[in-house]
């Protein structure tokens, strides 16, 4: 454990990881926050890959485990929308460091007009399925992903169910789904 170097719950002073990321990527970092002992970092869409790469490969930080990739549709949360230039989605990465035991949340706002982020499968192979799920549920694409297709919904499903404008009961898929063709 390297508590002195990477103390995330230090009283008052900013956590080491924030300092390091800020000095490396000045403009790439949009926001840093610490709440309930949890660290969150909002990164610009174009630098999020580099930031994740840095967090993973830096010998001291060593966020070597990608816990989850997910996304949030903020289309109904005005305060978040205004804060991040009306970016509708946030892609969220949860990181964990086996070395220090620290966790970190990295978020990247994504606009509807350029609905894509660079894939992190080159950093963590396990990201492949997680990113497929984000694509399946939100329609966000991941550049250079090795196999970006739906993972939970049927391949010919239309729409992205976890978007806030998608009705809970669907758009009639339950009635029109072709069970015979799928069965063949």
């Amino acid at each position: 454990m390297s508590e002195e170097e990477n103390d995330t719950t230090s009283s008052g002073k900013s956590p080491v990881v924030f300092e390091r990321v800020k000095e490396q990527f000045q403009d790439g970092v949009l926001d840093l926050s610490e709440e309930f002992d949890e660290l969150s970092l909002v990164a610009h869409r174009d630098s999020v890959y580099e930031i994740l790469e840095f967090l993973k490969n830096d010998a001291k930080l060593s966020y070597d485990f990608l816990v989850d990739v997910t996304a949030v549709d903020y289309s109904q949360m005005e305060d978040v929308l205004t804060k991040y230039d009306y970016a509708r989605f946030m892609v969220v990465y949860h990181l964990y460091s086996y070395k220090t035991g620290d966790r970190l949340r990295v978020k990247a706002p994504v606009h509807e007009k350029e609905l894509s982020v660079r894939t992190v499968t080159s950093l963590w192979k396990g990201a492949a399925w997680l990113e497929r799920e984000v694509y399946d549920m939100f329609g966000i694409t991941f550049e250079n992903h090795p196999n970006l297709r739906r993972i939970l919904m049927p391949d010919d499903f239309e729409g992205y169910p976890l978007c806030k404008d998608y009705p809970l009961r669907g758009r009639g898929e339950r009635e029109t789904f072709d069970f015979e063709r799928q069965n063949a």
Binding site: M153, P161, Y166, P167, L168, R169, G170, R171, E173, R174, F179
Partner: peptide, 13 residues
């Protein structure tokens, strides 16, 4: 689970 993806009763099939 009255949702977009759930069969509302297998007796339909």
């Amino acid at each position: 689970f009255d949702t977009y993806t759930l069969i509302q009763g297998v007796d339909q099939f």
